[in-house]
């Protein structure tokens, strides 16, 4: 995002030609830019929620005071003369190699009212899952026209896009490996399962036993790992959205479910299917 002026690849670009309602509602987590692409490179920015800004050197506490006055964050190549008099410069972008950020000025107004004279072009960045729904909530009842914007910066690197395909392939490989290891590891219990079955234990009893000492430790470990990830994520590698946590949880839950099914399968194969006399 740094290389393309802090526009997420899933950002919604749109224009409003007629304003029904000027106020921007406070809902969810978002950054909404408003500007005129034909004129200067200053952009009006409204934010809500916990938004991660690009690396910025902030001057004093003015940034914290944005509730009470209009503030601006500007790139180092921007002339301060383009900043309106009623805005106070709160900081500078420090991303050394971002030509877009270095030549932009973000104006954060205190008012939450749109004025179309300042541009009818908007870019909506959000970490929300349902981006269109949130956008409709905050600008309701205004009609928008979506613009299919080109993606610049790292997003426009062909190698970067096909790298994702490589990662997806590897994800499949990991699932195969996981299945394989599970299978081998669970098969080690086949003698125990057979003995328990011939000793007279029911299928459900054997399954619960296997579940307790095979699956539950994995559930506990996964939960601890997820909790640690959530706690340390902001210190290690701050990301734009939180989707990766949700995807990780879904993947881990899926893996645990697969392990449960595999356990059931192994118990079934080495007990009822193999038969044998019960004592």
């Amino acid at each position: 995002m740094i290389n393309n002026g802090f526009v997420n690849k899933e950002a919604i670009t749109f224009k409003i030609t007629k304003l029904e309602e000027a106020e921007i509602k406070k809902s969810g987590t978002f950054m909404l830019f408003q500007y005129n692409p034909d004129s200067s490179n200053s952009k009006i920015l409204w934010m809500n929620g916990d938004i991660k800004l690009p690396a910025t050197a902030l001057e004093s506490a003015t940034f914290m005071e944005r509730q009470v006055e209009n503030i601006a964050i500007i790139g180092k190549e921007v002339s301060t003369t383009i900043i309106p008099a009623n805005y106070k410069i709160a900081g500078y972008f420090t991303a050394k190699n971002s030509y877009l950020l270095n030549s932009e000025a973000w104006l954060l107004p205190r008012s939450r009212h749109i004025d179309l004279n300042k541009g009818n072009y908007f870019v909506f960045n959000t970490t929300a899952r349902d981006k269109v729904k949130l956008l409709n909530e905050i600008i309701h009842p205004n009609k928008i026209e979506i613009i299919d914007e080109e993606k610049y910066g790292t997003y426009s690197l062909y190698s970067n896009r096909s790298l994702l395909l490589g990662l997806q392939l590897f994800f499949i490989l990991i699932i195969v490996i996981y299945f394989l290891i599970n299978n081998i590891s669970l098969n080690k219990e086949k003698y125990l399962i057979s003995i328990m079955h011939t000793t007279g234990y029911t299928l459900s009893y054997i399954y619960i036993a296997i579940f307790k000492y095979r699956v539950i430790p994995c559930i506990v470990c996964s939960t601890i790992m997820i909790l640690i990830s959530i706690v340390v994520k902001n210190y290690l590698y701050p990301t734009w959205g939180e989707d990766w946590i949700s995807y990780s949880i879904i993947t881990i839950m899926g893996s645990l479910l697969l392990m449960m099914v595999q356990s059931l399968f192994v118990v079934f194969i080495h007990s009822i299917k193999k038969g044998g006399k019960k004592y």
Partner: peptide, 17 residues
């Protein structure tokens, strides 16, 4: 299967490089 996936990965890697 692992070998097939691995070679898929190698192919993507070659295209990428």
């Amino acid at each position: 299967l692992t070998a097939t996936l691995l070679f898929f990965f190698l192919l993507v890697l070659v295209i990428n490089i």
